[in-house]
Amino acid sequence: MQATISRCAGCGVALQTSEPNRPGYLPESAAAREPVICQRCFRIKNYNDASSVAIDQDDFLRLLGGIAATNSLVVHIVDLFDFEGSLISGLQRFVGNNPVLLVVNKIDLLPRVTNWNRLRNWVQKLARSSGLKVADVVLCSAKRNIGFDRVVSTIGDMRGDRDVYVVGATNVGKSTLVNRLISDYSDLGRELTVSRYPGTTLDAVHIPLDDGRSIIDTPGIVYKSRMSEIIPRDSLQAVLPDKPLKPITYQLNAEQTLFFGGLARFDFVEGERQSFTVYSSGSLKIHRTKLERADELYANHKGELLSPPSKDYLDEMPSWTRHRLRIQPGENLDVFVSGLGWIQANGKTGAVLDIHAPKGVKVLLRDAML
């Protein structure tokens, strides 16, 4: 690419031709067009597609660092299926006195009989325990357009004369919300054809609104602690649910094991016979075996019976780490594995569990969601 082509005329980001998933990507074949804009802005301009570009955590935190000095509404979108994995840790220290609206997406994955008030209280409690003060919580499904009108109207009510920062991890539905806000509040196409957005920072797109304020669409942050970020792309379909979850309950004795494909392993080490309910993608195959046979089964069948990942990608996956978890008698808890789902412990007599998951993937105990 010619050295004279350095910045996108649409968003101002530095242009590059080598990394399609990084900000500023421009196919070499497009370098001659006028004006010269990155692939992201091209898609916004021509397809109204404000899909996010991933940046690493350090770049993202530098971007968040300027929010406290602004007068803004911060809209944080999280994935209900991967709540702890998609919640931006430490967000509170960056937002200053600006209000935070927590938008919880993908509620369509839960059973219809879900107590939504209880779920909302659960979300608020977990947000508080993570140090995040939220002005309001809105539950929605961007895919099914459930509660989305309320999201948009709540943003309209809360923002007043503020700008709107939209933040979130990758694959949480952020682009769907930004597109809806563009449709309702902005003449994006006209602005893009005239000039680059005013006030654009290196890794964000400022979308002018009709009242002179802006939506600041920040790139999706990549958390390597999420299973969905470290597995091969061709395995995502098996891990990420696209239809309502169908919980499966297993009656287990101590020293029994559940394999989640070849991605994780759940060992019931000690405790009285009890049931565990699995909430994971219906496309992910679960295999039950005795604990004493688990190592042998994995060694002989990983990448085949126990997949994903397939054999072709086994060497690319991080090695497993064991997490020892203890559930005390009377506790109602979930075992959460980021990006894979959760297992609700239904027994009231306590249990000792070992969870084996790729190194770095977030594994924890939490209050039961349902």
Results as ranks from 00 to 15, higher is better:
residue 197 Y to P: 07
residue 286 I to P: 03
residue 258 L to C: 05
residue 25 Y to I: 11
residue 349 T to G: 14
residue 307 S to R: 15
residue 177 L to Q: 01
residue 183 S to G: 10
residue 28 E to T: 15
residue 303 G to T: 09
residue 352 V to Q: 09
residue 127 A to Q: 07
residue 200 T to Q: 15
residue 19 E to A: 15
residue 280 S to I: 10
residue 202 L to N: 10
residue 213 R to M: 10
residue 292 E to L: 09
residue 46 N to E: 14
residue 199 G to V: 14
residue 46 N to G: 09
residue 20 P to W: 06
residue 96 G to A: 06
residue 21 N to Q: 10
residue 293 R to I: 05
residue 230 I to V: 14
residue 180 R to P: 01
residue 101 L to W: 01
residue 290 K to S: 11
residue 153 S to Q: 15
residue 226 R to Y: 11
residue 235 S to Q: 02
residue 43 R to W: 00
residue 5 I to A: 12
residue 320 W to Q: 12
residue 231 I to D: 00
residue 202 L to P: 04
residue 5 I to T: 12
residue 210 D to I: 10
residue 157 D to I: 11
residue 246 K to R: 15
residue 309 P to H: 06
residue 28 E to P: 04
residue 290 K to G: 07
residue 291 L to I: 09
residue 287 H to D: 01
residue 90 G to H: 03
residue 66 G to E: 10
residue 269 V to Q: 08
residue 111 P to S: 06
residue 98 N to C: 04
residue 368 A to W: 04
residue 33 R to L: 12
residue 78 V to M: 09
residue 238 A to D: 08
residue 54 A to G: 11
residue 314 L to D: 02
residue 175 S to K: 01
residue 364 L to D: 01
residue 338 S to N: 05
residue 154 T to L: 03
residue 170 T to K: 07
residue 150 R to C: 09
residue 118 R to T: 10
residue 152 V to K: 11
residue 216 I to M: 02
residue 179 N to V: 04
residue 297 L to R: 06
residue 362 K to A: 13
residue 329 P to Y: 02
residue 31 A to D: 08
residue 309 P to W: 07
residue 124 Q to N: 13
residue 358 P to R: 09
residue 114 T to V: 10
residue 369 M to F: 06
residue 264 A to T: 02
residue 142 A to F: 05
residue 120 R to D: 12
residue 14 A to W: 08
residue 229 E to D: 10
residue 115 N to E: 14
residue 98 N to A: 05
residue 147 G to V: 03
residue 6 S to T: 15
residue 23 P to S: 07
residue 78 V to L: 05
residue 91 L to P: 02
residue 191 E to T: 11
residue 257 T to R: 00
residue 212 G to R: 08
residue 91 L to I: 10
residue 339 G to Y: 09
residue 220 G to I: 05
residue 143 K to A: 13
residue 88 I to H: 01
residue 111 P to Y: 09
residue 205 V to T: 12
residue 90 G to T: 04
residue 354 D to K: 06
residue 42 F to K: 11
residue 355 I to K: 03
